[in-house]
Each structure stands twice: as C-alpha cells, then as structure tokens.
C-alpha cells in the first residue's frame, strides 16, 4: 500500500526514528510501511494519522483496494 508518510515526515523535518518513537513501534516498521512492504494495522494507521493530525485516508492510499 502506498502512503504519504515520507512526504509528511519531510514537511515536518521528522526522522523515521522520531515518528517510530511517537507511535510506539520500531524504525524498521516505519521503513517497511513507507516502501509498501508492510501494511499497517487499523490501530497503527490510526495512531500515525492522529500523530500528523490527519485522517487515515489522507495518510494512506486506498485506491488499490477500490480497484
């Protein structure tokens, strides 16, 4: 699944480690989500979206699921 996390992080000058610490996961998991190798659970997606102050749809691209 594609995500806007790299762009959102860069806009806020946030490292992967800082985001990982904020949502309580490892940096490797953030990397995997960013490159689309791992799809975050609903709970984690919610935590990440809430951290950025956005909705889940604004952070994660669900267009592949809609096809």
């Amino acid at each position: 699944m594609r995500t806007n996390i790299p762009q959102l992080r860069k806009a806020r000058k946030l490292s992967q480690q800082e985001l990982a610490d904020a949502v309580g996961i490892t940096r490797q998991t953030i990397t995997s989500i960013e490159v689309g190798r791992y799809t975050a659970s609903l709970e984690l997606a919610y935590k990440i979206a809430r951290y950025f102050g956005l909705t889940i749809e604004e952070v994660f691209d669900f267009s592949e699921l809609e096809e």
Partner: peptide
C-alpha cells in the same frame, strides 16, 4: 517494550 509490541515483528 517497543520491540515486543511492534506489530510487524509479531507478524
């Protein structure tokens, strides 16, 4: 604790 509750590592 962070590693233990990391959902990707659990998967």
């Amino acid at each position: 604790r962070c590693r233990d509750k990391d959902e990707r590592l659990q998967e």
